[in-house]
Amino acid sequence: MRTPVYSALAGGLVSLAVSGAAAAKPAGMPQLDFHSFAPQLVWLAIAFVALYLVMTKLAVPAISDTLAKRQAKIQSDLDAAEKANEDTRALVAAYEKRLADAREESRGLQRQQGEADSAVATARLAELGEKLNGRIAEAEKRIAGQRDTVMAGLEQMAGEIAQNVYAKLAGQPADGAALGAKVASAVKGTSR
């Protein structure tokens, strides 16, 4: 394809012309000017190989490196987020477990405390009841004693009154012992 250029013709024609305007205009399409093929192909090869080297040595490794690095970064970030999420979930679960445990424990303690409290109260109540019973018994005893004393005093007083009244009515002293027994039985009868 690289048609050899007739060097004499080409050199002669184009050595003066810089813009190329002086070159003889071929009739029809410039694409079919065979003399232009060689320089086009040479420079196509130079430009294409240069671009290929730039791409393979510089651009493609730079871009693929960057893309891989970005992919790795995104993946590691996603992994970290996933891990953080799992950690949080584990923490929440642990927290909830502790909360439930604490609640259970407090309920147990409350129950225990309640039982202990009621036992203490019962004991105290029993103690108090006993004490009160003791007091009541004591008070009853004291009342009975006082009544006896009072009744004894009453018998004696009634006996004396009866003797005095008998002495006044009968004009003679009464038989103390018989009267005393009668008075005593009468007093006892009223006191019932």
Partner: peptide
């Protein structure tokens, strides 16, 4: 579409001009 030679390069009859 005309090819214009901006710089004449000729290597032993082989035209490698910068166009």
């Amino acid at each position: 579409f005309e090819i214009k030679r901006l710089l004449h390069l000729n290597f032993g009859g082989f035209d490698a001009s910068f166009t």
